[in-house]
Write a protein that binds this DNA or RNA. Structure first.
Lengths: 210, 210
DNA sequence: CACAGGATAACATATTTATGCGGTTACGGT
DNA sequence: ACCGTAACCGCATAAATATGTTATCCTGTG
């Protein structure tokens, strides 16, 4: 028997979900709430297996509710429900520890499947959400592009710059004169199209040269 | 009619998949190959809607094949097939532009569903894979640790430092005296435990303060 | 071989940064 | 009314950085 809690501010939807789930074999809705004001106590009291959490709620919204729960409970599976596949929310929800993210328009039978999937350790996502996630991921990893063809020595200098070394320390570290360090750095600036140490460092991070 | 190409080195599985898919209404396997050696030409010739790409292949593996295709074709949907939900591969595949990632043990009917889902712009993933993805995401964004409690103004200054502004430019931008900029920056260095602009910039990136 | 490019180095000079000290004003909390 | 803190500003000085120019040595390539 899968035990659920529901958080959903819309009374119709809240009742509809409860009835749908209670009417299905193997599922039981322990309680349904219209806000997250006492979410921690409620979860503690009812000890559900899965929580359906609406995102767009007045007061403490679903994302905040999610985070509150995760501060004290890593076990319970939390399935986020939303109307929109809004980029920002998706990101916050998954980095906040949600187990799944499904659109409200998901057909009932699918929803039950998703609940089961979540309970058994899966991460159900509506296809459009999954697409978003993949997009975020690949944009995150935007494989550089230019490599600025820095020479080996230049890369090494840049590396040390990034680690906070001064010219003097770099010279020391690399067994070369400080003026040589200057030469290298000047070259690096040309290649990266910057003109200060901190810009070079920033660029190194941005373009994942380090 | 959904047109597919299959890349799979195991002859049994290759034949099995082809027969399964060809035997289903609305699907047609254009061709099936045992390696990715000519993947670009093949994709160009057959113009499939969806490609099933095994990951573990001798020679050019599925990840490399994926990348090759993506260099010249962003349209075709690519569904990665694998035996293991191996962390590294998942990451590489999704950042390489795969549209979905499913385990080989996926039951036939599910697989057909996934193909449809991929074709219609979704991102089908086996639950265990989706879980991996979410985990990667949340571990990625966990950091935070100290927030260094920078004041609003200090955050603003740091932001500008990161963007490569000099003290003078910051003063200009923020309508304050350059000496005030100095004061702020000194305070920032204390709070971040650094003692140079570039170190502060590096720390800002590392700790995701920006 | 000549030539290009990388790595090395020196010198000079202007600008920027880091750090020390000092100070005023304003606002929220005890 | 007092304290702490943020935000603001100034002066002085030492250190670090940015920029330009020049030059040698070595290595790989046409």
């Amino acid at each position: 028997m899968t035990k659920l809690l529901i958080y959903e501010d819309n009374p119709q939807l809240r009742e509809g979900l409860s009835m749908l789930i209670n009417g299905s074999d193997g599922f039981e809705v322990l309680a349904a709430f219209k806000n997250c004001n006492n979410v921690i106590e409620e979860v503690d009291t009812w000890k559900p297996d899965v929580i359906l959490m609406d995102i767009d709620m007045p007061g403490i919204n679903g994302i905040e509710g999610l985070k509150k729960i995760r501060q004290v409970n890593d076990e319970v599976k939390i399935l986020m429900l939303t109307v929109f596949d809004d980029n920002k929310n998706v990101f916050q929800a998954i980095s906040g520890g949600a187990n799944g993210y499904v659109l409200k328009k998901t057909p009932p039978t699918k929803l039950l499947e998703y609940i089961v999937e979540a309970q058994s350790g899966g991460a159900p996502m509506t296809a459009s959400i999954a697409t978003q996630v993949l997009k975020m991921f690949s944009s995150m990893n935007n494989e550089k592009g230019e490599d600025y063809n820095l020479s080996d020595r230049e890369k090494q200098v840049l590396q040390l710059l990034v680690e906070g070394y001064s010219y003097k320390m770099i010279a020391n570290e690399m067994f070369i004169a400080i003026d040589t360090v200057r030469s290298h750095i000047k070259k690096i600036y040309e290649k990266l199209h910057v003109n200060s140490k901190s810009e070079a460092v920033a660029k190194a991070f941005k373009d994942r040269l380090v």
